[in-house]
Write a protein that binds this DNA or RNA. Sequence first.
DNA 1: GCCGTTCCGATGCGCTTGCATCGGAACCTA
DNA 2: TAGGTTCCGATGCAAGCGCATCGGAACGGC
Lengths: 195, 195
Amino acid sequence: MDHDSRRRQIARAVFDLISERGMEGATLRDTAARAGVSMGAVQRCFSTKEQMVAFVMEYMNQRITDRVQAEIPDTANPATAMTTLEHTLAATLALDQPSRAETRVWLAFTAQAAIDPALAAVQSEEYAGLAKLIALLISAAQTHGHAHPDLDPDQEAEALITLTDGLNIQLLLGRHTPGSARTALHHRLNGLRIN
Amino acid sequence: MDHDSRRRQIARAVFDLISERGMEGATLRDTAARAGVSMGAVQRCFSTKEQMVAFVMEYMNQRITDRVQAEIPDTANPATAMTTLEHTLAATLALDQPSRAETRVWLAFTAQAAIDPALAAVQSEEYAGLAKLIALLISAAQTHGHAHPDLDPDQEAEALITLTDGLNIQLLLGRHTPGSARTALHHRLNGLRIN
DNA sequence: GCCGTTCCGATGCGCTTGCATCGGAACCTA
DNA sequence: TAGGTTCCGATGCAAGCGCATCGGAACGGC
């Protein structure tokens, strides 16, 4: 088997373990067992557990990014910027089972980042990229008269990301249903819309 | 020393350890050392580590509740309900060093609650209590013409709590400063205000 | 076809963990 | 003050951890 694909295979196993049992559930032995390989294989792919965890964080970020990008149409259509914006933000929410798993992992890494500045820096970069994308969609909506023109796209993007973070926590705790979260997001976006 | 006060003393030690090193930093040995007692004392106060952690969660919730309650004036003054509302919500934010520590612990427990329904149920109750208080303040503001009358206090309370959760994450990751978080909260509350 | 290199599964090691055990100090009751 | 109970500090123990080690399998160049 290819080296990189094995790394991804192992990362997937770690991802599942963290999603089910939290950060402490990601031991080398359980990871190897879940991935269907031996411990030696894991140690060959990642020289240390810390490196493995760091790789899994990138893997998680990639999965989230992929899910978000899937909502962006190939041909940029400014006429539907607001709809694209809503779908993009919804893509970051824990609305179904796979995204719930991702969000649990995200929360575990976020808690880790809160006590590890190195992880915080990485996640901050990730947020910055998402914020840039959201701000771009807001700008597009503004130039076509679908969003209030006197809003700062960057500031509004930050606010929307803050909203989705809060919604995700409430979703994981069961205080929001997928439906109510969607409604809350839609209601919040009404504050941007013109018509 | 009194039994209950020793439990609180130990809980405080666990609290600090979790705040600094996360959930995994709360070992029995380190807890005992930090609290200045022996391991035997810890084991006498809490028959198992799981019970100890559960007690620490209550301890954390109590600290947050205390901080919030301190913002509620003794004599309910409906004329300043909106101000009280803003101060109350600000009390849940990680704006200074002590509240940052509390919020790190809160995030650690929230991540745990995401994979443990029992913890999620407890935290859900805690949220419900806070939401009730927020909704009450909104209602008071409405009856005195300081808040838009056609808003659902309960729904708005949920939205505000969701906002503070998101702000806290951004604060811990360093993507919000205390000042920008205060501004974001104030700006959000402008949506409720009448004058 | 043989050897050198690369890879990997298995095992061992040192360490830490939560928990059980036990001897003695401290304190209350009579 | 003697005896009994309560408490606690120290130590032991089994399990699990990350990591190092090593023998053998698989593969490629000459």
